Amino acid sequence: MTTGPGTRPAAAEDEDAPVRRRPPVSLVLCSVWVVLVLASTLLAGLLPIAGYDEPVADGATPPFESWPEFLGTDSVGLSVLSRVIHGAQLSLAVALLGTVIGMAGGVALGTAAAYFKGWLATVVNLLSDVVLAFPGLVLLLAMASVTRPSVWSLSAMLGLLSLPSSLRIAYANANVQLGRDYVLAARALGTPAWRMIVREVLPNIAHSLVAFGFVMVATFMIALGALDFLGIGLPPPRPSWGGMIASGFDSIRTRPYLVFVPAAVLLLTVFSFNTIGDRLRERADGRGGHL
């Protein structure tokens, strides 16, 4: 096929076309798992499963011996599947609410400190250094031991612990954006500070904040599982993954599934949130290509 002086070969056009990369298999599987966990949590009341406090057998039933209780039952005949699904409700509620609290406070303080600088930046950074100086888990255990555990109290404690980290993420990214030409031009036009932050800065640092939020959800789920395992987390009768691991630990030799099932669900959920967060962070940094 002949080509004129004003045309380009088809091969050259193909080389200039953008290359669409397929998302990694691990990212797809992790996304499917997160959607499955969220869907089962939101639709727990509509699923054909027993209640988390409703006995379905006389005693411990091994997995894959009945349907729909294919994960077996515990020592008093409660469905492990039902308790895992209902336990996800509390774990995700506390983790997500704690992330929202910590991110909201951190982003507000971090962007304000980056914009106004001066004494505000000094005070904010000093307070974040003070909080970060304490071991996070020790501080969380101390606060949990003197408060009545509930979804709101645990979420507030986790949000407080994540405040310095989210503050630093917001402060660093906002500092970069505030030095860009479009911000300098908006400042020269007399744009108010709140409009500058909301309309100019926040949309351009949203990718980094969302990526950090996924990682924080995974971190909070581990912290909540540790508190539940130690007996100072969410109280019964509502199930939790950490509480299920603790209650089945004494019978791990005879009925190991009582520990391994909630532990595996917690592991897969934390791994999935971390994987998605890392991928979003790579994309925000410009190194990860397309999702």
Rank of each mutant, 00 (worst) to 15 (best):
M1T: 12
A12G: 01
E15D: 11
D16F: 08
V19R: 15
R22K: 10
R22T: 03
P23I: 06
V32C: 10
V32R: 00
W33S: 01
L36A: 15
V37F: 07
A39D: 08
L43Y: 13
L47W: 09
P48L: 11
A50Y: 03
D53W: 04
E54Y: 06
D58G: 15
G59W: 10
A60M: 08
F64L: 15
P68I: 06
P68Q: 10
L71G: 03
D74I: 09
V76N: 13
G77C: 05
S91A: 14
A93E: 11
A93R: 15
L96G: 09
T99G: 06
I101F: 13
I101S: 12
A104I: 08
G106R: 09
A108K: 03
L109M: 13
A112P: 00
A112L: 15
A114F: 06
A121M: 08
T122K: 12
N125R: 15
N125Y: 02
L127I: 07
V130W: 08
V130Y: 04
V131F: 13
F134L: 15
V138D: 03
T147H: 08
S150C: 03
W152H: 10
S155W: 09
A156D: 00
M157W: 01
L158R: 02
G159K: 00
L160E: 04
S165Y: 10
S165K: 09
S166C: 01
V176F: 04
G179D: 02
Y182D: 11
Y182R: 02
A186L: 01
R187H: 00
A188M: 13
A188L: 11
P192T: 03
A193F: 04
M196S: 12
I197S: 05
V198C: 04
I205Y: 06
S208E: 12
V210E: 02
M216H: 08
V217A: 01
I222V: 14
L224Q: 13
A226L: 13
F229M: 04
L230C: 05
L230N: 06
G233T: 08
P235N: 02
W241A: 07
G243V: 06
A246I: 03
S247W: 09
I252E: 14
I252M: 15
I252P: 12
A263S: 14
T269N: 09
S272F: 00
F273I: 02
N274E: 10
N274A: 09
E282S: 13
E282K: 11
E282F: 06
R283K: 12
A284Y: 02
D285F: 07
G286W: 07
G288Y: 04
